[in-house]
């Protein structure tokens, strides 16, 4: 609302200009806190053993960098001028940061089902719960009233990226199952879950791709970056969302196949110990 928020970017900003960092103390504190919480035990563990692979730390670090860029770059200031860029940011938060962070978690994390955090996570990572929350986020905030508010008002402006991040974390944690101590679902279950959870996004993407008109009033007359029309922006956003949903969908198919093979094998082989 004050002078420092003036975007000052032209209508054709370069990637470098868009990725120039801003400084929102709370967000930086959160990200640095996460980094400290991860890398301190990582380095401690590396001194004595190699059970915590370096590649996991690299992925986690990459996840944090993506989180920083999606929330703390100048791209945040041009939301009103590019729906595609906004959607790109949201998709980084929902579909790129979460798998990186989840894959970054070491396998030796132990959470028992009876501990307090174990119970809380067991509740929220129940595939039904995660799927319902994720669908609610995608559907509710893509209905014009919800989406418009996220662009125009400050309150909702910070909320939607946060919800996409949380929703994405839930989905990817269920799909990748980093906490076997509390996540007891079979491959088939996770496959079905992945498939179902990718549907709401695909539906929204299809609507954007084929809608003949601009659905969100703040974008109807928007001066868009790179000389695009609002309608083109909406269609590109559809592509971005569809492409961002593909990894979840493909992984879901892989898991379903693995499950089918498991099913087929289970008839001929003795059950193996897990």
């Amino acid at each position: 609302m004050t002078g420092d928020a003036v975007s000052g970017l032209g209508l054709a900003p370069s990637l470098g200009q868009l990725l120039a960092l801003r400084f929102d103390p709370l967000m930086w504190l959160l990200i640095l806190g996460l980094a400290a919480a991860y890398f301190a035990p990582f380095f401690r563990s590396r001194r004595t053993s190699t059970t915590w692979p370096v590649w996991r730390a690299v992925l986690f670090g990459l996840g944090l960098v993506c989180l920083l860029l999606a929330t703390q770059s100048r791209a945040v200031t041009v939301t009103q001028a590019s729906m595609a860029l906004y959607m790109g940011r949201l998709m980084v938060l929902a579909e790129l940061v979460p798998p990186l962070l989840v894959l970054g978690l070491p396998l030796h994390l132990k959470l028992s089902q009876s501990s307090w955090p174990g119970r809380a996570l067991g509740f929220i990572l129940d595939p039904w719960v995660a799927l319902a929350l994720w669908s609610a986020i995608i559907i509710f905030w893509n209905v014009p009233a919800g989406f418009n508010a996220s662009i125009v008002t400050n309150t909702a402006g910070a909320l939607l990226p946060a919800l996409y991040l949380i929703g994405g974390m839930l989905v990817w944690t269920v799909v990748l199952r980093p906490l076997p101590g509390i996540q007891g679902r079979s491959m088939g279950n996770r496959g079905w879950f992945g498939l179902l959870s990718s549907l709401p996004m695909m539906a929204v993407a299809a609507v954007w791709l084929y809608s003949p008109s601009v659905l969100y009033s703040p974008y109807v007359g928007a001066l868009c970056l790179w000389n695009l029309t609002p309608l083109q922006n909406q269609a590109i956003s559809g592509w971005i969302m569809a492409l961002a949903g593909l990894p979840t969908m493909s992984l879901a198919f892989v898991q379903l196949f693995a499950w089918l093979i498991e099913l087929a094998d289970s008839g001929t082989q003795p059950p193996s110990a897990t």
């Binding site: 509740f123 929220i124 129940d126 595939p127 039904w128 719960v129 799927l131 319902a132 929350l133 609610a136």
Partner: peptide, 9 residues
């Protein structure tokens, strides 16, 4: 699970 899901939403 279904009841949990409704509560969560």
């Amino acid at each position: 699970s279904l009841i949990f899901a409704l509560i969560a939403v």
